[in-house]
Amino acid sequence: MKERKSFFCGLDNHKLFAIHFPGEPEKPVAVLCQPYGYEAVKTRRVYFNIAKEWAAKGIDVLLFDYYGTGNSWGEFYELRWSGMLEDIQIIIDEACNITKKNKIILAGLRLGASTAAIVAENDKRVESVILWQPIIYGSNYLLKVLRSNIATQMAINHKVSHNQKQLISKIQKGEFVYVNGFELTKEFFNEVTKLNLFQMIGKYKKQCTIIDISPRPNVKISSEYKELNKFYIENGASCDLRLAIEKNFWTELKYYYQNAFNMLHESERALLI
């Protein structure tokens, strides 16, 4: 297996950090889209090992950081959801350029999955999209994100000084609200609030794999994902809905999550394009 190569790419003042895990000539290239904020920190090791695993199967893989995140240029408060969409596009261009291939698999977890799904709508090079536990409604997701701020308030002050409503009001005034050390900005908040996956997809007609993740076996797949699967199929995509038994490795756990083997196993069919 060839050695991976890390590099910065993108525009002069908008450099993105990326790692290319080389594959074989006949196979496609996969772009891994990370989740948001703290979740991206928690899942980095799993992403790195997915990239290695897929590269061992011959697939070229690009793992990258959005602008303002990870090792990319910029500050976290500059992160925009629209920017995440643009950055995926930059990386797809880069992936095609360095591998001389034009068949893309786009995979992402949580907000990274939703972002990937939207990019797939307009990019003809995307042949397969893998959505691991996608966020369907941005507003619900952000309320959960804000709960982390409240948990920190409780841990530090033993009381809640700002409830969800007050935190949203602070954000709307342009103040930063910190979530696990990351700034949640008005711009990011307002963009993600508008996320409703059902209203933003419908044109993509190729292969799609939705993977619900549950720590417990024998649970039913979430009804939201069933609806999403149906929606894709009704709109002409070839969609597959699966359940992977994994702990919620994007959250705080007692375990150091290095590999998500079940999630990878359930994603395998999506790699055959």
Binding site: G70, N71, Y178, N180, G181
Partner: peptide, 14 residues
Amino acid sequence: GLTYNIGVGRLYVR
């Protein structure tokens, strides 16, 4: 700890 080189809250980058 086990947090990668950016640090918690990207503190190491800052």
